[in-house]
């Protein structure tokens, strides 16, 4: 099946532009149960190595902008805004982690943490960092479904 899947990728990319892959759960359709999300948003398993990249890259998740993570100490400048993520994989289930990364406000009311898998409900949404207006149907989620899964996979490796 793998070659076939690869062949289909460009078709989907053209058809869906920034809407994500066909197998993704759309941002508006994610089911939160007490803040947790039970099923994979991409329908696939996460890759912890890819998650590590998302967490430490400024243009992606940049999780360490606000959280310290001891196992990511090779990357400079960890922030002090949110709690440390050390031990996150012991404190939270996979579903809870997926829910927090997708939309932390569903778990922590009023949290400062951006919602990484959401496309609506914003005040004056802009076109990325241009300062120009963007309509909600033009917005992409901050991370893709697979990137969320990758981050969740990495967080699960952070055991006490």
């Amino acid at each position: 099946m793998k070659p076939l899947k690869l062949a289909l990728v460009p078709v989907f990319a053209l058809a869906l532009a920034n809407a994500g892959w066909a197998g993704d759960v759309a941002a508006g359709d994610v089911v939160y149960d007490d803040g947790a999300v039970a099923v994979s948003l991409s329908g696939m398993a996460g890759d912890p190595a890819a998650g590590k990249k998302v967490m430490t890259t400024r243009g992606l998740g940049n999780c360490i902008a606000c959280h310290t993570v001891s196992s990511l100490s090779e990357f400079a400048f960890h922030g002090e805004i949110g709690p440390t993520l050390d031990g996150a994989g012991s404190r939270w289930t996979e579903a809870q982690l997926r829910g927090i990364v997708s939309d932390a406000k569903k778990t922590f009311d009023g949290s400062m943490m951006p919602s990484f898998y959401k496309k609506s409900g914003y005040i004056r949404p802009g076109n990325a960092y241009t300062g120009k207006a963007a309509s909600e149907d033009e917005l992409s989620t901050l991370l893709t479904a697979q990137q969320i899964e990758d981050v969740v996979a990495y967080l699960q490796t952070l055991k006490d």
Partner: peptide, 22 residues
């Protein structure tokens, strides 16, 4: 405001003195 949903207060009232990345 915005897709990051941040107010002035999030950073400058609730978190002054803290590091946000560098």
């Amino acid at each position: 405001t915005g897709q990051l949903e941040l107010s002035c207060a999030n950073c400058h009232e609730d978190n002054y003195g803290n590091m946000i990345r560098a």
